[in-house]
Amino acid sequence: MRLTLRVWRQSAADATGAMVTYDIDGISEDMSFLEMLDSLNEQLILEGDDPVAFDHDCREGICGACGVVINGDAHGPERTTTCQLHMRHFSDGDTIDVEPWRAGAFPVVKDLVVDRSAFDRIIGAGGYISAPTGSAPEAHATPVPKADADFAFEHAECIGCGACVAACPNGSAMLFTSAKVNHLNVLPQGAPERETRVLDMVATMDEEGFGGCTLTGECATACPKGIPLPSITAMNKEWLRATRKVAR
């Protein structure tokens, strides 16, 4: 395949960036999108150019490190991560626009790499349980109803890639935060911190400069793990409940 790539190039966080056009040939449709970018970088290195910086790690769709906006869609046209997107979803001769996640809370570090540490701070505010460590507890000691386990698991699938923020016209982190809150709040292990978790995580999300939710649904459409939009509704419910409860 022969492709024309238009890639966001920005040498540093405080530098001005621009879309730069590259022609690339010999792309196999079995390559992943990241392998295609690897090929581009090999070409750039041979030409003595600076390779395109992009985040990546496991390359099997579970770590959440990779993620770029491809033709205006976070992670591209398929519902998966950028590393699991294959070039067979594009055609020979296509022009592909590659941009970094755009959000005030996710400043560009270099090229396609953004600083997502705001997510870490949201997790730090309550995305954990407090439990004595040691050997694994007896699995049957704390029964969890099947429906709750399924609900928790659905939300635990969030890999924190940031596609929801990138897709949201308001740069909102509501889907990410709701996935983390719902995952722990429904489980007995998360119950002692149920109220403080949602209040503190939402407060930190606001402090980090993410926008609010206007329920456009763009986040859930972009999510490679299929975290559903009602997840946000469930967190709103938890937040309102916690506000009432903590006031008592």
């Binding site: 626009d97 941009e99 959000a103 005030g104 926008g211 206007t214 456009t216 649904g217 763009e218």
Partner: peptide, 28 residues
């Protein structure tokens, strides 16, 4: 207040534009 915040939270728009959300949602 929320709109001001939302607009500030997305300071840079994407170069590649595409239609997002339904008409009713976009015109709120």
């Amino acid at each position: 207040q929320l709109s001001r915040r939302d607009i500030a939270a997305r300071p840079t728009s994407y170069v590649h534009k595409r239609r997002r959300a339904s008409y009713a949602t976009r015109t709120m």
